[in-house]
Design a protein around this nucleic acid. Structure first.
Lengths: 343, 343
DNA sequence: CAAAATCTTTCCAACGTTGTAATCTGCAGG
DNA sequence: CCTGCAGATTACAACGTTGGAAAGATTTTG
């Protein structure tokens, strides 16, 4: 049987409540009493029962992070950043994978697990703007990602349009003019794909170039294999291009591999830039230029906002929106000179 | 205020306990009563309070997975496999990152969070055999990894020696004889590094080749950057070799990049094989041959064993050891012909 | 048709903790 | 020496659920 407060109280010759008071740093405890209790806790190896505390106080100090897929490097790195931020503040994180499916996302959101956590960080993928109403759950929540804007909750996101525009300009500055928009979702307006395509268009427009629809390559799923497959089709079609704005790093890496197999040199024949700055981009051959979307800042801000909601510190505050800063990370895949040795 | 069983009971005109009985599928409930209760649950949107259930029943249906680092692809894929296996059985997973530090691992293992979970899957890195006694905690546990054997708990692992031997033989069969053992930890006997080095030696021995100590390259940490750095030093030293047995995929990918930068062709000049079969190996240039260590089987078995311990179904069973099967995955980096188009 | 056996539902207590309010201590002030 | 008051401690109830056993309802049996 586990040690409870009762045992500690007995050992320290005080009431159970005094033990509780010591543990929770209540005021008005005599120094000598506190000491006695702490000694007893130490001696018995007491550990609070978090279920009981959760029941009584309504707090579990657990938050939930809902993401599409942990195997996706972007989300693994996001999860790491969130867990680190949460851990600093004494919270644990439960990760739930939605697989990006709308049904599963709603199921999680309305499942009984929500009652076990103090709040949710929800990285949407399957839902869309019309579902904004469905995410109004009693549990405090902060939304991550690009699928829903101006919903009933706080929202932390990245500067998709601006960053994608900067990525495109990065290639334009290097004299490339026939740029693929790689990973588009044609009918989407506000998802990551829609916004990044918009950034691409703005950059072209600003440079006085026409947007050519055949250069926007639809790739529904954003894994390496999808990037590889899509690039194979592009090459087979004979489409002429000298640069690729890939909408995430995995797509870029898959595409890069296929281009190299086909004998194209990067960056000499085709320059390519990705999006997300996953660890792998620093070690590919060539290393991949990309956008650092401010993952750390996103995680820190999201956790901080969520905890404010949980504490009620932001009770009166209306739903907030926060956009993290981004950076263009220039590497070999867009180098002006042929690639040489790198980090 | 949230809906409780009391509200449901009232709505269905039964006692609270009957509601509980319905929810927990107790025998001997009249069909009509069950129906009435279910309707009330549905109508009110009742969700059980998991803290209360946890307190009363001693079960939380949460298990904890302790791993060194989620950003490491191997562990991200392991975590995914574990979460999937757990989810099938109605459990959620809390991931705790230890950073591989001994102190942090012990801290987690003896921290109050352990009281909130039913069991632990513990992927050791910082502890070692001498610590076997320290991991004897009251919470059911299954050990993963290679640092501790014959401890007081169940243990699920991979066939490190056999797999490493098979990897080495894979290169030997292709006529390579000057093989680096890349990622060794010289003074280690039973960690992954020690076991994989042992497999390497056995393969050499079986082939009648001498083990040459200068070909065992020490790399303490197993990230891409460490592999890159170590390979730079090898090349600078002028050491002659025609094959690399890398002790994990990240090391291999880092090393491969550096060799290519130096003008070495893979596999023509140097053949290389990794270990872990992370997703990335299918998309590198060239694709990387590797060992599939049976990650899925490891996750499934570990979760199953843990749940048996939690249920008490394995009460009398002494500590078990399980080794998952492995497979050599042959790709371009060890191809006999020069690389061509791949998947 | 009563008694026994079975099925179904309910009552009560308990899990370990914390909020509220009450009690008890010691000490200053009158 | 009593009153008042602040500081320190405690008693009690409650959070929402489930295990155990009692109670009530129904069916079977002799």
């Amino acid at each position: 049987m586990a040690i409870t407060m009762r045992d500690v109280a007995q050992a320290a010759d005080v009431s159970i409540k005094t033990v509780s008071n010591v543990i929770n740093d209540h005021p008005n405890i005599k120094a000598e009493t506190r000491e006695r209790v702490l000694v007893a806790i130490e001696k018995l190896g007491y550990q609070p029962n978090l279920s009981a505390r959760g029941l009584r106080s309504g707090r579990t100090d657990v938050i939930s992070l809902i993401i599409p897929d942990l195997k996706n490097a972007y989300f693994a790195e996001l999860a790491d950043a969130v867990m680190t931020a949460a851990s600093k503040r004494g919270k644990v994180v439960i990760i739930e994978q939605s697989g990006g499916s709308r049904a599963r996302e709603l199921e999680i959101l309305h499942g009984p697990r929500m009652r076990m956590v103090d709040g949710v960080l929800y990285s949407v993928l399957g839902l869309s703007q019309e579902d904004a109403g469905l995410i109004d759950i009693p549990t405090p929540m902060v939304l991550l990602g690009e699928r829903i804007f101006h919903g009933p909750t706080d929202h932390v996101t990245m500067q998709n349009i601006e960053a994608s525009q900067a990525a495109t300009e990065h290639l334009l500055q290097r004299g490339r003019t026939k740029l693929l928009a790689f990973g588009a979702h044609r009918n989407e307006v506000i998802g990551s794909a829609g916004l990044r395509l918009e950034g691409y268009r703005r950059a072209l427009q600003k440079a006085g170039l026409d947007y050519r629809d055949e250069l926007a390559i639809d790739v529904q799923s954003w894994h390496r294999s999808d990037g590889a497959q899509a690039m194979r089709e592009v090459l087979a079609s004979g489409l002429d291009f000298d640069g690729v704005v890939a909408f995430n790093d995995s797509l870029a890496l898959g595409a890069m591999r296929v281009m190299q197999d086909a004998g194209l040199r990067i960056p000499e024949d085709v320059a390519i830039i990705g999006f997300d700055d996953i660890d792998e981009t620093r070690y590919s051959l060539p290393t991949l230029s990309t956008i650092d979307p401010g993952r750390q800042e996103i995680a820190e801000t999201a956790v901080a906002m969520l905890l404010e909601r949980i504490d009620g510190a932001a009770e009166a505050t209306p739903a907030r929106e926060f956009e993290a800063g981004f950076k263009v990370v220039s590497r070999e895949s867009t180098a002006i000179q042929p690639a040489e040795d790198s980090a």
